[in-house]
Design a protein around this nucleic acid. Structure first.
Lengths: 253, 253
DNA sequence: CAGTGGTCTAGACCACACG
DNA sequence: GTGTGGTCTAGACCACTGG
């Protein structure tokens, strides 16, 4: 007789809470608005903070919320469509390729990368770090692996590393007739360095896009780009992307 | 001198634990092997079970582990490459399209879908449910939205719903000259029905692929497919996909 | 400084699979 | 039944942001 089980829900609390909050976001909040803090929300719904957080995590994963330590939880705008298609302008080193080169170093790539590049183990390759910004916020961090054989004319460049070196490598790469071979997308979690670049915490969910570029039948470069999964919708094909978003959206007035 | 801080780690415990476990998986475990249970593991590492679980969740998200209630935690095989490219055989209703039709109903689609289909609000459309199996396990659940206008010759079909109806709709669709227009990929969490189909719990991370099909310039169908994010690597392009998997040495730099 | 989200603990009970 | 992972609690302290 002690049970206070007013509602027989085989559904977990956090999942039900997610639904309730999701509907509240649609009807009672506008983009950018700040939610009550977690302790207040938990008290309001009569659950432990950990349970409330489980619901918030779900909503953040779905791109509905944005949480920042020391600041608060805000309603996120609809995900932005980010083109990862075959458009010419997306070519590495091409004009207006949406990427900003940061750095370049000669490093030994991970085993899986070396395998795809068909280079020897422990054979260093050029690694160009680039980042991509869209609508004022960072959306992707990329590592471009380029075998030394792909850009043989680099002896003329004196800069051993740094931005200048990165641009030089890209310039050389651009002279090749690159052909995009394949893409793959999978879920991953941001490594510490990527997380910093993406303004997220380590372990944040990311969409990892790997692309292989061919030149005269050989693998000339391999790109591993990590996109923020919470804010990005990846679009393939040359157009901007379908405008599909979830639920009604109200904007601050 | 009183600090027992043997290691000055600004790193969270669960993240460090994730790394340790990840390396252990590479060197000491083989695919399919069962890990010790969570209580034992937590005790072994001297952390609370919740913390240990946080690390396991990360590894599951990355496709390294598979956890099943009542059974245990096992080492997952490398993610399988699943083609979502433009290959002919992937056409809805085409022969060997890798999909199995389950059901069909006339329903009012979500607002976002109706918008893309350019149908009126509250106007019902055919909704075909399909599922996709690869290597013996379910990898995707799909909802195919087809405006009634796309398949006008369905009055001859008497089955109001069910598998027969679904196949009939697909057969009609196949007679159109479909043109794949766009794809988008984003992270989502499995709804209850999808989760059941994918043999996962509600809220499990999924990759949502939306595809628009055109016929004579009009949107003839819209596919919303949810793929298991833990087991699948989506490949675009007509070939099988690059064989990139996470071996030992996942981390660069 | 005060307030926020992030991490962590030590328990408890539940839902499920399997013998 | 036993044993597993899944959910939930009520606290505590930490790391960060901003006034």
């Amino acid at each position: 007789m002690g049970t206070t089980q007013l509602e027989t829900v085989p559904e977990p609390k956090y999942w039900h809470l997610r639904t309730v909050l999701s509907e509240a976001l649609d009807s009672e909040f506008s983009v950018g608005e700040i939610l009550p803090n977690e302790r207040d929300l938990a008290a309001r719904f009569g659950v432990a903070r950990a349970t409330l957080r489980q619901a918030l995590e779900q909503l953040e994963l779905e791109g509905r919320l944005q949480r920042r330590r020391g600041v608060g939880t805000t309603v996120a705008p609809p995900r932005m469509g980010v083109s990862v298609g075959t458009a010419r302008h997306a070519w590495p080193g091409g004009p207006n390729d949406a990427w900003q080169a940061h750095d370049c170093a000669l490093e030994v790539p991970p085993a899986a990368v070396a395998e795809t590049l068909v280079t020897g183990r422990d054979e260093p390759v050029h690694v160009v770090r680039r980042s991509r910004v869209s609508r004022g916020q960072p959306v992707a961090a990329e590592l471009l692996y380029i075998p030394a054989g792909s850009v043989p004319d680099l002896t003329a460049i004196d800069a051993p590393s740094g931005t200048a070196r990165a641009r030089a490598v890209l310039r050389e790469l651009q002279r090749l007739e690159l052909e995009r071979q394949e893409n793959a997308v999978e879920l991953g979690s941001a490594r510490a360095d990527d997380a910093k670049e993406l303004d997220r915490l380590p372990g944040a969910p990311v969409l990892v896009v790997t692309t292989r570029f061919l030149s005269r039948g050989r693998t000339a470069a391999l790109s591993v780009a990590t996109y923020r999964a919470d804010t990005c919708r990846l679009t393939f094909g040359d157009s901007g992307g379908v405008e599909i978003h979830h639920g009604p959206e109200r904007h601050a007035s």
